[in-house]
Design a protein around this nucleic acid. Sequence first.
DNA 1: GCTATTATGGATATGTAAAGTCTTTTATTG
DNA 2: CAATAAAAGACTTTACATATCCATAATAGC
Lengths: 128, 128
Amino acid sequence: MKYSKATNYALHTMLFLAKETPDKPVGVQQLAEMQHVSPTYLSKILTKLVKEGMINSASGANGGYTLSQNWEDISFLDIIHAIEGKSSLFDCCLYNDPKCVIKEVMLSAEETLENELKNRKISDLVKK
Amino acid sequence: MKYSKATNYALHTMLFLAKETPDKPVGVQQLAEMQHVSPTYLSKILTKLVKEGMINSASGANGGYTLSQNWEDISFLDIIHAIEGKSSLFDCCLYNDPKCVIKEVMLSAEETLENELKNRKISDLVKK
DNA sequence: GCTATTATGGATATGTAAAGTCTTTTATTG
DNA sequence: CAATAAAAGACTTTACATATCCATAATAGC
């Protein structure tokens, strides 16, 4: 079980935008070079963030990506969910038992993790 | 990111052994039927638990698996680590930055999760 | 010691999802 | 219109989980 590289790219991109961009859009070219990924692949990842309203994109000359207005509220969990999806980390439908005690423990642990990640914002990492 | 089915099988097997077995070994045949898995596959999973000292195995007639003496101390985390390995959930070596702030957040969140899972024991689920 | 029973180990599929590429289309600026 | 840049679709590659099959090793009971 591991977080995907895509999540890593997304987190680093968000942090970079938060540190660098006032208003000027940053192209995927630049973002991709920094992280040593192909631009098209990173583009696919960032499109997910656009669809979740975390960043804005602009086509055409001088286009690129910028943070959305509410960027200071965006948590690690938000970004992770945008990339990895929101389904539970643990599937336990072996016996179709809705009251499976193992499931209960695992889901409660997952909730603890999510609460932690919900409280950590990208904006907390941008201090001068 | 998801926990593997193998982890699920291991957890359910441990719980079953804790509930049922006093001393009598349970064969992989029975355990596999219960969970609708092939015996050989489950066997490979259980062998990992044997190597970690969580259960004992006995070959030959009337053989099978039994819990080890210290079974009441075995946590969810122990079982998960035995099956999934102990490596971190998050790899962030993009820039080889040992002080990556994103990595710090992710590892600290993972630690929270592990602490939760460390405190949950299989034996806690066996109450009568 | 022989045989039946049961776990272990190795080699080999199979399935699925992540990771990445290539090409085309769409949108925007100048 | 031409240049730039994101979005979208189809596709390939890689990696790993999930098995399956067969041979081997260990043990109990006779």
